[in-house]
Amino acid sequence: MKRTTIALALSFVLLASASCNQSREQEVSMPEMDYAVSENKDSNVAPKSIRLKGSDAAAAASVAPAEKTIERSQTVNKPKIIREGNISIESKDVKTSKKNLDQQLKQMGGYYERESANTDNNNRISYDLVLRIPSDKLDGFLTSVENGKDKITSKSLTSEDVSLQYYDLESRLKSKRAYLERYQAMVSSAKNVKELLEIQEQIRQLQEEIDSSESVMRNLSGQVNYSSLRINLFDYQSNLPMGSNSFWSRVKSSFGFGGDLIANIVLGIIGLWPIFLIGSVVVFLILRWRNRRKVRFQSRNQSL
């Protein structure tokens, strides 16, 4: 009986001791902890650590599981593809072709990012255009151009998958915003001026990183949503070896050259008018002098 009593007493003591140790471990597991926003790839400045206590540290640490959830959800996100292209268009009526491009671009909801026109020595116009077209309508626009009257002399399209970069940036941006909200909430609970200044510095750095990330995301979204297409639109006579009527183009050019030559000769003759004027005066004076000399000679012969 005594042994049984002693055994029960020892068991009770061991259970009490284990409970005390467990409670101490729980107390130790919630000490002051250093918490800092981890330095991201797109950040050049690593923020300083701030010592958080108790519930603040636990609340800040709860942000990490949310980031993992975001990473796991990336697999079902829509791919982000940047598409770009270059085409050269040979046209027999460049001005009409340009108007058709304007109309098609307007129907597709696109716009000109750059538009320039050049005129060569033969008064032939060519256009260098950079179009921004909604990505889901790029193929339709190209099909419309290819089915037109003009000739496509060259064409190239490229695609770049930026899904990983985009969603990684989006995930980091969400994480930074969560950290920013937490730091803003900590301002009112700062214990002294030093801690307040450290929190405000963290807020400043996070805000700068968020602004930078948002700028990059806007740029990526713009490139994904609107594809870039560069078009070189030129007269078919500017590319005779590839033109559809090169012989007749040369005949037409020859007639044009002959007309230009005649015009240049006429203009050259007109440009020599001072010489013709002086020559006319000289000839007039010479003829007048000869006439007077002839009259004198005749008068002298008659007197003899």
Rank of each mutant, 00 (worst) to 15 (best):
F284W: 14
E39S: 07
D93E: 10
F284N: 11
L8Y: 13
A178N: 11
I210F: 04
N77H: 07
S212W: 06
V224D: 00
S126D: 09
F255G: 11
K294T: 09
L173R: 05
E209P: 06
D56M: 01
L229Y: 05
Y179A: 06
V28N: 14
N118A: 15
I286K: 08
N118H: 14
L233E: 05
Y35N: 03
L287E: 10
V76M: 12
S244F: 05
K2Q: 12
Q205V: 10
L277S: 12
S29I: 09
R172Q: 08
E67S: 13
E113K: 13
E113F: 10
D34E: 12
F12S: 12
N192R: 15
A60C: 00
L131I: 00
I50M: 01
N118W: 09
R114H: 13
S38K: 12
F141G: 04
G109Q: 02
E181Q: 15
T143R: 07
S29A: 13
S19N: 14
R230Q: 15
L267E: 03
E84W: 04
D56R: 00
E198Q: 05
R114M: 11
K80C: 07
V216G: 09
G259K: 08
L240S: 07
I82N: 02
V145E: 03
A263Q: 02
L105P: 04
E181A: 14
E71N: 08
A16L: 13
S91H: 01
S213E: 04
S29D: 06
V224C: 03
K106V: 05
T75N: 13
D161L: 04
A61Y: 14
K92A: 13
D168F: 00
I133R: 00
Y167C: 00
A61S: 14
L105Y: 05
G259C: 01
R172Y: 06
R292Y: 01
S227Q: 02
K95I: 06
A61P: 07
G85V: 07
R290M: 15
M242T: 13
V45Q: 00
S212Y: 06
N21T: 13
L8E: 09
L240H: 02
G54P: 02
L197H: 09
L220H: 07
N118Q: 10
G279F: 08
K78I: 11
E25H: 11
C20D: 15
D42W: 15
M242W: 02
F284M: 10
K191F: 01
F284E: 09
N192I: 12
I89F: 04
S55R: 04
L8D: 11
W248A: 10
L267A: 04
D260W: 04
T5D: 07
R182G: 06
K80H: 04
E208Q: 15
I89P: 03
G140K: 01
G279Y: 05
S135A: 02
G54T: 05
E71I: 11
S154K: 07
E27G: 10
L267S: 00
F141E: 00
S62D: 02
F234W: 03
L173K: 02
S189A: 10
N192H: 15
E214T: 07
N44D: 09
K98S: 12
G148L: 06
F12G: 11
K176I: 09
I125R: 04
L52P: 01
G271T: 04
K149F: 03
S175L: 13
F12T: 14
T5G: 02
G85F: 06
L261V: 01
V216H: 14
D161M: 03
G54W: 02
S244W: 00
K252M: 05
